[in-house]
């Protein structure tokens, strides 16, 4: 890029300026969240606007971490985000790879079968029945198996595999590998950046598992983090007002303070956010998904 006129400089200035505005607009509310999580509730209620707390306090965090279930819920969530992600990658990858090989018989039938699920979403009750009949209620697998993959991911990953030249595969076949061998030794290593990108998608999904856990998990010790936090934070007083006419507000629990809620948000989102920078360099190349075509 050789031109160095004032036009270019002006363009860069405006462009960078706009991006700064976008960046600040996203960061400010988040800054506010973090700040509030370290503020004393009394100060929060007394002052109208807090941009910097007078006194920093860790009380909200201490309160959250003192919950006996915290450790178990963290381990459930970590299990989901690791094992679940790996399984998802394998299942999605295997299927997407098979579907990307054009010589495969019944490929289109399978494709249509996958695509249709994109549009027809099964209801909650039927899914519950399936999970129950498989005996998965109260098992950590009920949080992994029903969300292993989706038409969306299969499709994107297939797009990525489409871009890998068939010649590579043929060379390996001549060396005596079978399809699984090719997939494992050649395709997967080649796709590392894509796998990282997909891995992050899956990991975020598993980390944020909430609704399925509500439905399929009764045992508190099996709760993932998000459910635990929601349960600690939700204001139970709104409940029971549903159809019973709202008489029995029998709740003895305090509504959690705003600062406590913010601390919960920080705890729930920071770990998964921290994963991102480590993967960033793979990312640029990784998310090419489906974009590179012959």
């Amino acid at each position: 890029m050789h031109e160095k006129g004032w036009k270019t400089r002006l363009f860069s200035l405006v462009n960078n300026g706009l991006l700064l505005v976008v960046g600040l607009a996203t960061i400010f509310p988040i800054y506010y969240t973090v700040i509030l999580s370290f503020t004393d509730p009394v100060e929060y209620y007394q002052r109208s606007l807090i941009l910097w707390p007078r006194v920093w306090t860790l009380d909200a965090y201490k309160h959250l971490l003192s919950n006996g279930l915290f450790v178990s819920s963290i381990s459930v969530s970590v299990f989901l985000a690791t094992i679940g992600t790996l399984l998802s990658l394998l299942v999605t990858g295997g299927m997407a790879y098979a579907l990307s090989r054009k010589r495969l018989r019944f490929r289109k039938a399978m494709m249509i079968m996958v695509l249709l699920t994109f549009l027809f979403t099964p209801g909650l009750v039927p899914l519950y029945l399936v999970v129950r009949n498989l005996g998965l209620i109260d098992s950590v697998w009920s949080l992994i198996l029903p969300s292993l993959t989706s038409a969306w991911y299969v499709l994107l990953m297939k797009g990525f595999f489409d871009s890998i030249p068939v010649s590579l595969e043929e060379a390996a076949m001549i060396d005596g590998s079978n399809d699984i061998g090719v997939f494992w030794r050649i395709i997967l290593p080649l796709s590392l950046p894509a796998l990282v990108a997909f891995g992050l998608f899956f990991a975020v999904g598993y980390w944020n598992t909430y609704f399925n856990a509500l439905m399929f998990i009764n045992d508190q010790k099996m709760w993932p983090l998000q459910v635990l936090l929601q349960n600690m934070l939700v204001d139970p007083t709104t409940m029971g007002s549903g159809n019973g006419g709202g008489f029995a507000f029998q709740v003895n629990r305090q509504v959690p303070t705003e600062t406590l809620k913010m601390a919960a948000v920080v705890i729930a989102t920071v770990p998964i956010m921290l994963v991102y920078p480590f993967l960033q360099k793979h990312f640029a190349k990784g998310a090419m998904v489906g974009s590179v075509k012959e």
Binding site: N218, Q220, N231
Partner: peptide
């Protein structure tokens, strides 16, 4: 089986 109040109705 304890139901937490936030989700009891749906469950």
């Amino acid at each position: 089986t304890w139901l937490s109040p936030s989700t009891a109705e749906e469950k």
